[in-house]
Design a protein around this nucleic acid. Sequence first.
DNA 1: ACGTGTGAATTAGTTCACAGCT
DNA 2: AGCTGTGAACTAATTCACACGT
Lengths: 209, 209
Amino acid sequence: MTDKQVPDVVVGRLPLYLRTLKQLQTEGRRVISSAQLAKLLHLNPAQIRKDLSMFGEFGRQGVGYTIPDLIAQLERILHVDRTWEMIVVGAGALGQALVNYPGFEINGFRIAAIYDNDPAKIGKPIGRFIVRDVQYMPEDVRSHGWRIGILAVPEAAAQAVAEQMVSAGIRAILCYAPTVLTLPGNVQVQYIDPIVHLQHMAFYLEETD
Amino acid sequence: MTDKQVPDVVVGRLPLYLRTLKQLQTEGRRVISSAQLAKLLHLNPAQIRKDLSMFGEFGRQGVGYTIPDLIAQLERILHVDRTWEMIVVGAGALGQALVNYPGFEINGFRIAAIYDNDPAKIGKPIGRFIVRDVQYMPEDVRSHGWRIGILAVPEAAAQAVAEQMVSAGIRAILCYAPTVLTLPGNVQVQYIDPIVHLQHMAFYLEETD
DNA sequence: ACGTGTGAATTAGTTCACAGCT
DNA sequence: AGCTGTGAACTAATTCACACGT
């Protein structure tokens, strides 16, 4: 009942639950039912209950879930009841926007360094950082024990940089390059490519205009 | 056999096929089998064949798929055999990075205008644009017949801005705000939230360190 | 009366395996 | 010999529906 083998699709929904619960908490709510949460997320209430039940019994019959308690449980389950330090590789427009995004710190992720291989960018200030030469990335990662990397380099460089990250100790990569990485099975990878989403939506758009 | 009712999960994979095929084309490849493509995407070959077979018979037995032909077919199916104009609402760090992202134009999407409600940003140049007051967004959308919007505003404003977009005629929204939008069923929405991906990966990270 | 937790039923998605064509 | 297209088999995910507790 604790955790035997949790489907990845379930893990993928937990951050959405957490995000919504935190939002409700800022609005002063203290209790919520699966039906109410489901409505906000456009999901089925049974799915939320079943997902949560894989990790324990967090609700009270006849009442619902106590929001602060459920937030604490989800943060524990997702290992975000701590702060994770991350590196960013690629100091282009995207890398700069990432460094200035306040959402990371609020949610337990903290950018610790940013790298590039372009001499024109190395040494320049971005946010609270100085861009470092990517050649120092592996030793920095090793010495600090960093585990999470954000890949914001061009597609052509993505696979090689990812491999360097992994051999230095990175175990989770958020990849903004428009490509599929091939890495060892013990490395987590998630992708963000706006083109993929836009083309997905375009399928459903009328060809009018 | 043409298209009866295509599962959304299949539509979601087509952009990945297209992206990979375009990459192969730049490398000079002209033919590819489902097995080879599957390897690049870490998918099952039968899945690729079945996905494609929902839209027609594009391969040749004993040979595989002709890359330029399959690209053309996928672009037609996804309605990206044309250029879609898009608006961006929100001229913060993210909005600026989006405006300067060259990937949109390469793939048939073109930013046509950027809006904000902050007097400090309105009138300022970003890339090839001048930031316009968001109050003009609805009439611009209507007069140009724009259908796609990118939402790059804070979470607190997202729902209200999305509703304004929709009532002006926007039918597809790429939402970077960390929230779930509630909109009419005929409006497509896709979400990009790096925190969700990071928390998803953190689940699998060892709690060491 | 309300809402959880969960087996059972249902629906959806994936993979197998092979006929048939090049 | 090689590879597609696809019905059949299999696996996974979702939703139902209700016993049980507040």
